[in-house]
Simulated scan of single mutants.
Amino acid sequence: MNIKQIAMRLTVAGAVLGLSACANMSAQDRNTAIGAGVGAVAGSALSGGSALGTVGGAAVGGVIGNQVSKPTR
């Protein structure tokens, strides 16, 4: 793992921790942010640190996090 990959993972982890600490976020918003962060890290790890893998992972993770806590009607 090179320094660029380490920096990317630390940045994403910091963003996830920062967003998850927001007190005025709804549960769905919080889960969306956490899902995007986890997805970005997973996408980066699976793609060898490529930007496309990281962004794709963030998008998929965000959608999953959003849908997991979606209110039922």
Rank of each mutant, 00 (worst) to 15 (best):
K70H: 10
K4H: 06
S50E: 03
A36K: 02
G57D: 02
I34V: 15
T54A: 10
R9C: 11
A36H: 08
I6A: 10
A21W: 14
A59P: 06
L46G: 01
A27H: 00
A23P: 07
G18Q: 14
A36F: 09
A33N: 10
T72R: 00
T32D: 11
I3L: 11
S69M: 13
K4I: 04
I64D: 11
S20R: 06
A23C: 07
M8R: 11
G39M: 04
R9E: 13
I34P: 01
I6L: 10
L52I: 09
T32G: 10
A42V: 15
G14S: 12
G65R: 05
L17P: 00
G14R: 04
V38C: 07
A21I: 07
G57K: 01
S47N: 08
G14K: 09
S47Y: 00
G62L: 08
I3N: 06
K4D: 06
G14Y: 09
G62R: 02
K4Y: 05
G65E: 13
G56R: 02
G65D: 12
V12R: 01
A42D: 04
S47M: 02
N31D: 08
S69D: 06
L52E: 07
G61M: 02
A33S: 11
V12M: 07
A45R: 13
G56H: 08
G35A: 06
A51F: 03
V63A: 14
S26T: 15
V60W: 01
V63S: 14
V41K: 08
D29T: 08
A27L: 01
A7F: 12
G39Q: 08
G48C: 03
S50H: 01
I3G: 00
G65I: 14
S26E: 02
C22R: 12
G61K: 05
G56S: 05
A7I: 08
G61I: 02
I6Q: 04
Q28H: 03
A42N: 04
N31I: 00
T54Q: 10
G48E: 02
